[in-house]
Amino acid sequence: MAYLELEGVAKQFGAQTVVDDFSLAVGKGEFVSFLGPSGCGKTTTLQMIAGFLDPTRGAIRLQGKDLTAIHPAKRGLGIVFQSYALFPHMTAAENVAFGLEMRNVPRGERTERVRAALAMVGLAGYEDRHPRRMSGGQQQRVALARALVIKPSVLLLDEPLSNLDAKLREEMQIELRQIQRTIGTTTILVTHDQNEAMSLSDRIVVMSQGRIEQIGTPQETYEKPASAFVSQFLGKTNDFAATIDRTSAPGRLIVGSWSAPAPVGRSGPVTISIRPERIDFGDAGLSAKIVTRIFQGNHWLFQCESECGPATVIRQNDGRSQPVEGEAVHLTWRPEDMSVRGVA
């Protein structure tokens, strides 16, 4: 049995369907991210799990128990909002203790749990500091400690790192993942940041226009995108029109002057996707010309114009000579490094 299960969940506001036919089974201790652009329904789905919104239809179950009739405060969930929502007149310790007070936890136990929670997020010694005297990263840690101190059955994170600068955000991603791994709390993260979802998640739910486009591990969704939307949204990619010709066994997948054995069960026009770092320059392959060459430290970024359209290539700065702008090249890749979409 799934620990947290959403079955056929939908949400409508009047005639507008914001979430449609959302089904997901989350295992105990799993870290799952809802990833998609603004307006795709990811926050609405999180709010239905939290109980702030009622689903129009469908079921939400936690350990087999229907949540839809349970008040948000009684669901036992921990929530960290984008704004952190700390009480400005309370110290860090008082903010963290608030949920325990509402649950009538005895003072002695409350004090010890608050101390342990703040230490867990690296804020030992900050118990008496008010939010206005804390940095954005420190406030984020207080909000996380407040959510975790109640020992929630599920931790819900609504873009909690979006207000941080890039360096601090990356540091907090590492800390958040370590904390989640240590305590083993089932976690749902809402984010529009592809790198954040891939860094933190056991699985990613990619959403678009209220529907699920793909569910998979970060590696699966990145390397084998199930749709054009996933391919384009989750990092840089190259999409080429191709044809599978089965006039002779076993058939060939043809992309301009590049070809390979055809995948099983497909024929006719298809689209292939290859990530830029999976393409290299070789003696044969797709004919192209280097339009732009950009040095980016540990790698080179090439913008090419190929016989099948624009192409992006990322090549490691590993001591090899690199082609220059205007140079004719051939693009090549391994068949296993591309994904194929189209006619079956």
Rank of each mutant, 00 (worst) to 15 (best):
S287L: 08
F240Y: 13
I294E: 09
G297C: 03
K289T: 15
I254C: 09
P250V: 13
G285S: 10
P263R: 06
S306N: 06
S273A: 13
G297A: 01
V230E: 06
S273D: 11
G251T: 07
T292K: 07
P250F: 12
F233R: 03
I254V: 15
V255T: 06
V255G: 05
A242K: 09
T271W: 00
A241P: 02
N238R: 06
Q296Y: 00
S267E: 15
G235I: 10
L301R: 13
T221W: 02
E223N: 10
P276A: 02
C304F: 00
D283K: 13
G285N: 09
Q296S: 02
I272W: 00
E305R: 12
D239A: 12
Y222D: 10
R278M: 13
D283S: 14
G265S: 14
L253I: 08
S306Y: 07
C304Q: 09
L234N: 14
W300K: 02
S259Y: 06
V230Y: 09
Q232P: 05
P250G: 13
A249E: 10
N298D: 14
K236G: 01
G256M: 12
A262F: 07
P261Y: 03
I272T: 06
R252A: 07
I272H: 03
D283E: 14
Q303E: 15
P269D: 05
I274L: 13
T221I: 15
S259W: 04
D280G: 14
L286D: 05
T271K: 12
S259L: 05
D280A: 11
R252C: 02
A226N: 01
A260W: 00
R252W: 09
I290K: 01
F229P: 08
V255P: 03
E223A: 14
P261L: 11
A241N: 12
I279H: 04
K289I: 14
I279A: 12
L286M: 08
L301T: 06
G251N: 06
A242V: 08
S227T: 15
